[in-house]
């Protein structure tokens, strides 16, 4: 393949990556923004989403489309409920102290991961995509008679990947509408800005926290359900999304939703493109060092508001 079509293929892979990453990182950012805690178990909620998607689809069987739709709705709901419960039982009791929360969520990380190992097992398992038509893509060429379209061999994308790329903007718009247009969004924003004052206005802050923790986990799970027909479900799959979400949330500014989306697209795209052309390990070394140095230079994140 020539460079042009190859690059286009990389961009499309990058978009798939960016879409999933946007959802996952948004969950982490939402939790940090509202609750001011770092959830180290976020990657495990992603993993649980994928595993539950496998469980639901294999339980229902039958048509791939219907089973997948059930997983798309069911898995995030279940993961959200698990997360809200974990928040109520654990995080609420350590009073959302930032350091103790990190230690507690490390504990949750191992508990979720190891319980999955005990029940789901160490194998990677696939989920069939609901539709998977291969679409060949055209590329243009300057011929003798102007621009000529042709179909290079290997330049194609599946309809399912297009669906994944489209899913993130839809969820984003929905989340934005909820945050800006509904009463629930108002409560969330009030808690995020000043939880003390919110409490004074009779907002049940602890219940809001449980809900936010649940929504954050559900967003990660949604990303996982979307990605699981492309990559298989595995009990250790949570590490990479956690790392990438951290990177995105830090580059985008801790707790800033707009910055998070921007950074997710940027990082997802570049990760997708870089791993087509370079080795993924080198890309990851580079990315982790960039995050560390960004935090050292600007503890509030690149686009974040400066806090003292």
């Amino acid at each position: 393949m020539e460079f042009g079509p190859h690059l286009m293929l990389a961009v499309l892979e990058g978009l798939v990556q960016a879409s999933v990453l946007t959802l996952t990182a948004l969950g982490l950012s939402l939790v940090f923004g509202v609750m001011r805690v770092v959830n180290v178990a976020h990657g495990e909620f992603f993993m649980l989403g994928a595993v539950l998607a496998w469980w639901i689809t294999s339980l229902l069987g039958g048509g791939a489309g219907l089973a997948f739709a059930a997983a798309l709705v069911g898995a995030p709901l279940m993961v959200g409920a698990i997360a809200a419960l974990a928040d109520w039982l654990v995080l609420r009791r350590v009073a959302y102290d930032p350091e103790r929360t990190i230690v507690a969520t490390i504990g949750l990380l191992y508990i979720f991961q190891q319980i999955t190992l005990m029940t789901f097992g160490p194998d990677a398992r696939p989920v069939p995509p609901p539709f998977n038509t291969r679409l060949a893509l055209p590329w243009f060429e300057w011929g003798e008679g102007g621009i000529a379209l042709y179909w290079p061999w290997g330049l194609s994308i599946t309809s399912y990947k297009l669906f994944v790329i489209a899913a993130a903007p839809v969820v984003l718009v929905a989340l934005w509408l909820v945050m800006t247009r509904t009463r629930l969004g108002l409560v969330l924003r009030a808690t995020r800005i000043d939880s003390e004052t919110a409490r004074a206005f009779a907002i049940p802050v602890e219940q809001v926290y449980a809900l936010v923790f649940g929504i954050g986990a559900a967003l990660a799970a949604l990303g996982a359900v979307l990605v699981v027909p492309i990559r298989q479900a595995h009990y250790l799959m949570g590490a990479d999304p956690l790392l990438l979400s951290f990177i995105v949330v830090i580059i985008g500014g801790l707790g800033s939703l707009r910055g998070t989306v921007l950074a997710a697209v940027l990082i997802g795209m570049s990760d997708g493109i870089i791993s087509v052309f370079f080795t993924p390990t080198l890309a990851k070394i580079f990315a982790t060092l960039v995050v560390a140095m960004v935090l050292v230079a600007r503890p509030g994140g690149l686009f974040g508001e400066r806090r003292t």
Binding site: P98, L289, A292, V296
Partner: peptide
Amino acid sequence: ALRTTGVAFMIVTLMFAQALFLAILY
């Protein structure tokens, strides 16, 4: 890392450690 505090310090140390681990693999 000491230029940061609190949660940022934890993440910076985590990231440096991860970079070293990946470098060993690389």
